[in-house]
Each structure stands twice: as structure tokens, then as C-alpha cells.
């Protein structure tokens, strides 16, 4: 029962991120979502393995990455998100529609999920969809990075299904990779900012045919 609550909370936080416009709040919301996320392995089946997972997510996604992002914001000195591709209201509506699609797909696929709750797969799908929508609809580079991270959270939810199966080494490798990915994105955002004076990807469109 606690697991379902956590899943719903993660999905709602995702939607709130989608709706928010100020970068600072978005980073804090992401940190909150990662916090709830790190709790879920313990809820599914507590054990030595789960503890390591929780600690890993806590260190990386709750402390390290948000600080990195906020450092990037201060460094790049942008506060407010410019109008997204289709306007806030419509993005939220689109988010809702995509969640509907996610639920419909996971229902149609009737994937055999064993002892964990049947809510897990749809929620994971919808968080991935929300992250993707965030990635697609925003112009600021930092927001796109946050969208990418929300999508990673969704993928992490799926990983819960096979918690004790995959060896630890692979788990850590995955987390490490995500971290390095975000690190490089941060560096590139830094370059964008130096070159274009603003971290918005609006003027990143002269490579076309």
C-alpha cells in the first residue's frame, strides 16, 4: 500500500515539474521526487541490496545533481523559463493525454508483473512520458536536462521490478553513466552560454537542410 502511495506521489511531482516555470523550483521538485524514489526499493523488498540502491540514489540524485544544476544556473544566471513550445496550459493537457496513453499501453500489454503492485508499470511509463514531454517542450538547456533526469527516474522505477536479479556492479554502472551524462550536458550548456550569451536553444536552429 505504501508503494502505491509513493508511486502516485512520484507521478504527481513529475506533473508539477511540468507545470512550473522557475528553474529553481524545478530543481527542488526534482530533488523531492528523487527522494521519494530512493525510498521505493526499501518498500518493495527490504534487504542489503535495496539499502545500497537507496544510498546510491540518495547521494547522486538528491544531493549531487541538484547542487550541480543550481551551480550551473547561478553560473549561467538565468532565472525564468521562456514560454514553452505550446504554452504551459497546453503542455499540461498534453502531459495528461500522454499519461493516459501510458496507462492504456501498459494495460493492453498485460505484462506479467509478479509480487509488486500492478500500478508500477503504468506509473513508470507515465513518468518516462512526462520526462520526455518536458525534454521536448522546453527551450532552456537546463530544463531539458531536468526533463532527461525525470525520464531517468521513470526508468529507475522499472528497475525495481528485478531488484535482486541484476548484479550490483551493473546497477552502479547505470547510475554512474547517468551522472557522467548530466555532467557533460552541464559543460556543453556552459559552452552554449559563452557562445550565444543565453542558454536558450531558440537560436540553436541554423543547422538545417
Amino acid at each position: 500500500m505504501w508503494l502505491d502511495l509513493a508511486l502516485i506521489l512520484i507521478v504527481c511531482l513529475g506533473v508539477v515539474i511540468l507545470g512550473s516555470s522557475r528553474l529553481g523550483t524545478m530543481i527542488q521538485l526534482f530533488a523531492a521526487q528523487s527522494l521519494v524514489l530512493s525510498a521505493t526499493p526499501l518498500l518493495v523488498h527490504p534487504g542489503k541490496h535495496a539499502v545500497v540502491m537507496t544510498m546510491g540514489t540518495l547521494i547522486l540524485k538528491v544531493f549531487l545533481m541538484p547542487n550541480l544544476l543550481s551551480w550551473a544556473i547561478r553560473h549561467v544566471s538565468i532565472r525564468r523559463e521562456v514560454q514553452p513550445l505550446v504554452g504551459y496550459g497546453k503542455t499540461l493537457m498534453l502531459g495528461g493525454f500522454l499519461m493516459g496513453v501510458a496507462f492504456w499501453i501498459s494495460f493492453r500489454l498485460e505484462l506479467p508483473v509478479r509480487e509488486t503492485s500492478n500500478l508500477l508499470v503504468p506509473c513508470a511509463f507515465s513518468v518516462v512520458m512526462v520526462g520526455f514531454l518536458l525534454l521536448v517542450s522546453r527551450f532552456k538547456a537546463i530544463t531539458q536536462v531536468i526533463g532527461y533526469l525525470v525520464m531517468e527516474n521513470g526508468i529507475f522505477l522499472f528497475a525495481l521490478l528485478l531488484l535482486e536479479k541484476t548484479p550490483l556492479l551493473v546497477e552502479m554502472g547505470i547510475l554512474l553513466d547517468i551522472f557522467v551524462g548530466v555532467l557533460i550536458m552541464g559543460i556543453v550548456v556552459n559552452h552554449i552560454n559563452q557562445e550565444f550569451g543565453s542558454a536558450s536553444t531558440v537560436n540553436l536552429t541554423n543547422l538545417r537542410d
Partner: peptide, 9 residues
């Protein structure tokens, strides 16, 4: 830089 950003994303 634009190419790298798109490639990365």
C-alpha cells in the same frame, strides 16, 4: 556546439 548539443540530447 549546436551539433554537439543535438547529438547529446
Amino acid at each position: 556546439i549546436e551539433a554537439t548539443w543535438k547529438y547529446l540530447l
